[in-house]
């Protein structure tokens, strides 16, 4: 079977029944999708398959034959982050980072579908994703900002936040 991951096509044989997660991580070496619960309960392994978010730990790799798969490595580059990545940075939406790639890919797909900054709708879209740091408030703020099309100057993000905190503004 052929899996096109972030624009690069890989031939993989004899792994149709393996999870897409294992094939991505172990066979192809793309480790952005995280192996959290390995049973669909956490969302850390979510990738985009032809633009649709899928739990890669539940998807037989054979079903992804011929599809375009996007992982967090394919969302943007360090020099040019995707809008959802910029929003996560600006809103401090990542703590330990384990859930972040799955969260961002699900959020990216939500915004691609025309999702708005409505918090209830965002919670529905990300309802299967667990943040073990419980940083949901900032994650939802970040997705809402990206859905609105906010722009971010990441060179001042940290400075501005620290300044606010230092002057007693707090969070």
């Amino acid at each position: 079977m052929n899996l096109t991951v972030n624009g690069i096509t890989h031939g993989v044989d004899g792994r149709e029944l393996a999870t897409l997660l294992d094939v991505l991580r172990e066979d192809i070496g793309v480790t952005g999708p995280k192996a959290g619960c390995h049973q669909g309960g956490c969302g850390a392994c979510t990738v985009l398959v032809d633009g649709e978010p899928r739990r890669s730990c539940l998807l037989p790799a054979g079903y992804a034959d011929g599809t375009e798969i996007t992982t967090v490595e394919g969302l943007g580059t360090p020099e040019k982050l995707a809008p959802i990545q910029q929003a996560f940075v600006h809103h401090y939406a990542a703590q330990c980072g384990f859930c972040t790639s799955g969260m961002m890919l699900a959020a990216h797909a939500y915004i691609d579908r025309g999702g708005t900054d409505d918090h209830d709708a965002i919670q529905q879209a990300l309802g299967g994703h667990v943040c073990r740091c419980t940083g949901y408030s900032k994650i939802i703020d970040a997705v809402a900002a990206a859905a609105r099309g906010d722009s971010f100057d990441l060179t001042t993000t940290a400075v501005g936040k620290y300044t606010t905190m230092a002057t007693g503004g707090g969070e």
């Binding site: 004899g14 393996a18 066979d27 192996a35």
Partner: peptide, 17 residues
């Protein structure tokens, strides 16, 4: 490196009608 967590496909006949 083979996946550690999945029954290998070599032990399974995979049928894709």
């Amino acid at each position: 490196m083979a996946a550690a967590s999945v029954v290998t496909d070599a032990a399974t006949e995979v049928l894709m009608p």
